[in-house]
Simulated scan of single mutants.
Amino acid sequence: MKDVQIRPFYASDVPWLVERHGTLYAQAEGFDASFGTLVGQILDDFASGHDPTCERGWIAEHEGQRLGSIFCVKLDEQTAKLRLFLLVPEARGQGLGKRLLDACTGFARGAGYAEMQLWTHESHREACALYRANGWHLLGSKPVHSFGVNLVEQSWKIRL
């Protein structure tokens, strides 16, 4: 996909992000509405109180169409957390996920974090393969019941 821009997140992106996360996860994995609610809470917290020196969000966009997102938020002085990494299905498999991941980890490194963490689900095989290929390490996994379905939750980490 040519001419995809990775631009800063704006508060006006919130409705799109909540809708896309909710819809895509419901379709792909059967998540209930509680997932969209969680995404909305995460975004509201970010939009109203993030520190731009050490927290940032990005939107991938092509010709005015949003294609994906990724966020870096502060866990503590040494650790950042990757959040809300999403690509719409038609944008997957073209290197855009790696571009977003590189933007996020590069920012975290530049902001002085020593490591990043994330949580995801085992069923996100393509994302997990991308993390592994880019130096992330699986810390652990456990079965959970979240968003109305049974899942295997995973925690990942990378040293920056």
Rank of each mutant, 00 (worst) to 15 (best):
V73R: 13
N134D: 03
S69H: 00
I70T: 09
V4Q: 09
V14C: 10
E55C: 06
A33H: 08
L38C: 07
L75I: 11
A60D: 05
A114T: 10
S12C: 07
G140R: 11
D76E: 14
G93C: 04
L100H: 02
L24I: 10
R99M: 10
L100E: 02
I70M: 01
R132D: 12
V152P: 01
K2E: 15
G148N: 08
D44W: 11
L43C: 03
G68V: 01
F147G: 07
K157D: 03
R92C: 02
G97P: 02
Y131E: 05
L75W: 11
E90N: 08
F85S: 00
C72W: 07
C72Q: 05
A11C: 09
F71P: 01
R56C: 10
L75Y: 14
A28I: 04
R99P: 01
L87G: 01
A80F: 09
Q5H: 11
S155D: 11
S155P: 02
G93M: 01
H137G: 08
C128Y: 05
L84E: 05
F35Q: 06
L138M: 07
S69K: 00
I70K: 02
N134Q: 10
P89F: 04
F31S: 02
T105K: 00
G64M: 08
Q41P: 06
L17H: 01
D76I: 04
S12L: 12
A91W: 02
W16T: 04
S146V: 14
I42M: 15
A28Y: 03
L118T: 06
D51C: 05
L96K: 08
A108E: 09
L130E: 05
Q78G: 12
S48H: 13
G106F: 08
G112Q: 03
S123K: 15
S146K: 15
L130V: 08
G95S: 03
E90R: 14
L82Y: 00
E122F: 09
W119I: 05
W16P: 01
F31N: 07
D51G: 10
D32P: 04
P8R: 09
G148I: 03
Y10L: 15
I42R: 13
H121T: 14
L67Y: 02
W136L: 07
P52L: 04
A33S: 12
A47R: 08
S141F: 07
F107H: 03
G64K: 11
